[in-house]
Design a protein around this nucleic acid. Structure first.
Lengths: 112, 112
DNA sequence: TTATTATATTGCAATATTACGATTAATATT
DNA sequence: AATATTAATCGTAATATTGCAATATAATAA
């Protein structure tokens, strides 16, 4: 089918899965890393940085924007993008909540 | 196309994207959470826990196994699953490396 | 052996994703 | 106004993902 049965899972499980999906492409990882490194706004020179077509980059940017991970502000003809700090913090906490469920000590004794 | 141009990106970017892809489905999140919560091996009663068909669960388990996130050991007729602690730690560190690139102080002053 | 139980694999349909050329819309420059 | 620049959107092709019924496989039980 190719369609996910979201109703079977909790809101948090679905949200985490959606965030993970946003990170599930190296181009989007690269875009995020670029914006994190710049520590500020960056014009759409991403097309030159990554080796993908303008339309493709634009599509990846839209996905990240849809999830609120990045913001874009118009700057004349071009557009400046940056990480949305609060959403990025939220994503970090979502992942940390998952990672924190892991107790490595118990696993050492108990695991198959 | 539906095919990712992995050659344009670094090994680490591709690995992180692949790990994110493994987490990019609520059923796989739920499976991982279940195994983390148990803190031990769990027989394949996941089919009853989640509301998906046996074939579907088996497919999700295979994806997680392929990435080394979970392990399965045969236990008579059934199979016991658990988190692979070292791979889980590695995944955690991959994400943390990404999150650590974010300097919230600089963003407060500088962002668009 | 035969049946039962648990899981994996196969095959398929429906939908999603990735990528890009072409086009469009908006602003700048001349 | 005419042209150039930048980025979004549309349309389309190729491939991937999700889900399940049906079947296969493997181990145990009767």
């Amino acid at each position: 089918m190719g369609i996910t049965k979201t109703d079977l899972f909790s809101a948090e499980q679905n949200e985490l899965a959606n965030v993970a999906k946003a990170l599930a492409h190296p181009a989007r990882i690269a875009i995020i890393q670029h914006l994190l490194k710049a520590n500020a706004c960056v014009n759409g020179d991403l097309v030159k940085e990554l080796g993908l077509a303008q339309a493709t980059i634009s599509q990846h940017l839209r996905e990240l924007k849809t999830l609120g991970i990045i913001q874009g502000t118009i700057e004349g003809v071009s557009i400046s993008y940056c990480i949305n700090p609060s959403q990025w913090a939220r994503i970090q906490s979502l992942f940390n909540k998952l990672f924190d469920q892991f107790d490595s000590e118990k696993f050492k004794k108990n695991c198959c």
